[in-house]
Design a protein around this nucleic acid. Structure first.
Lengths: 216, 216
DNA sequence: AAGCCCTTGTGAACACACGCACAAAGTCGG
DNA sequence: CCGACTTTGTGCGTGTGTTCACAAGGGCTT
């Protein structure tokens, strides 16, 4: 389930506060979900709470971490060291959850060789070698849209089976490869949509198109 | 619907290629969805295609843009000019879709006053003034988790009604305010989950916990 | 002008996710 | 040791989103 990481984060906060046990109601509130949904998620996952008491925080953290595969460390490569790639390479949230930034790769001569977040940027020509030598199974693509599919094909051919794609294109990959897409402009567009709804919606503006094509 | 931006992007690509008309089948393939779903989305939106022919690309682009509210321009403020905020301020995908970066705000004395992407970074003390003077209705939060709720409260109090939140916390806001959350580490965790599934799942590793607590 | 072919729009079955509400189960006080 | 209280786990009704399949409708060729 996609909600487990959210629960995990809430649990970490509770653990830091020294809370030993938590009820589904409290945890659900902290995670922003319905308590019944949370309980169902946790039961589907096989973890058991204690009736009348709740869930033991530490145990639940371990169970969810294990379910998510965070007990092992994952070697991650970032391809494309532009503004976004740079920001991602320094993002603390990755390292603290078992994700190890193992390699940074770019095509630009001015960037290759630079040291960023403690890593030397490698050249895209060496992509295959870098991936295999570092045992990388997860790649983050922060390259221009035009280059994304080509880079994707290469990382897949090199053995990467999970891709986090920031490029605004639909990548085509074999079924055995998982792709997750983060499109920042889509998020803003969805907000704009709701924002406009609040302002009365697009009704009554139909004429605009007629005027627009009229002006040609 | 959250899929409209995806259709819109695919349509833009087609328009650049000079394609005048497109069938639901083709567009669905380009957007990575089922063709029946696409047709239903478009019909719910009120746009009409022509049977036997398909949809006129240019017309559809206009219809979807209007529905999403992209025909007007939106003033956006980015709060928190760390690595991520910097990357966002220079992201081309925003400006090209009617989103105007109107203000950058940070708390750090060393960052305030810097010129980034053509804007001067303002001090967080002036947050309310900046938002009101620029008519900002959408705020992007790229601040540390600990500061997020406080900053959120202030932008909401200043009249912002849509928030794109990159901080790893669940924000609490009035019902009239929309919040979308992008959590980069959650995306990686979901990939790790599937990655582990491919490798055989977490079964048979139950003992690990016992060993782990044993070691204390 | 007429028939064929293509594509849209949608009715209906299906699947899934959500949340209520309750029984089972365990704890704590007396 | 027992009863009351608390909280989990889940059966079930509900609503939403997805997909199949097909009828309605428009263009194109002859």
């Amino acid at each position: 389930m996609a909600r487990l990481p959210v629960y995990l984060r809430a649990l970490h906060v509770l653990a830091e506060r020294g809370v030993a046990t938590v009820s589904s109601e409290e945890l659900a509130a902290a995670a922003g979900v319905n308590s019944a949904k949370l309980r169902k998620d946790l039961s589907h996952l096989g973890s058991y709470g204690t009736r009348g008491v709740g869930y033991e925080v530490e145990y639940l953290v371990y169970q969810i971490s294990r379910e998510l595969g965070l007990t092992q460390d994952w070697a991650v490569a970032i391809v494309g060291i532009g503004n976004l790639g740079r920001a991602l390479s320094g993002y603390g949230g990755f390292a603290s959850r078992g994700f190890r930034m193992a390699a940074l790769v770019d095509a630009e001569a001015g960037i290759v060789g630079q040291s960023i977040s403690g890593l030397t940027v490698e050249h895209i020509d060496d992509l295959e070698t870098v991936i295999k030598d570092n045992g990388i199974s997860i790649a983050v693509l922060a390259v221009p849209a035009a280059a994304a599919q080509a880079v994707c094909d290469r990382v897949v051919a090199s053995g990467v089976t999970s891709i986090l794609n920031f490029a605004p294109v639909v990548l085509s990959v074999p079924d055995s490869v998982d792709v997750r897409k983060v499109d920042l402009s889509i998020e803003l567009q969805i907000l704009a949509f709701h924002e406009q709804r609040k302002a009365g919606g697009p009704s009554g503006v139909e004429q605009e198109y007629l005027e627009a094509v009229e002006g040609q």
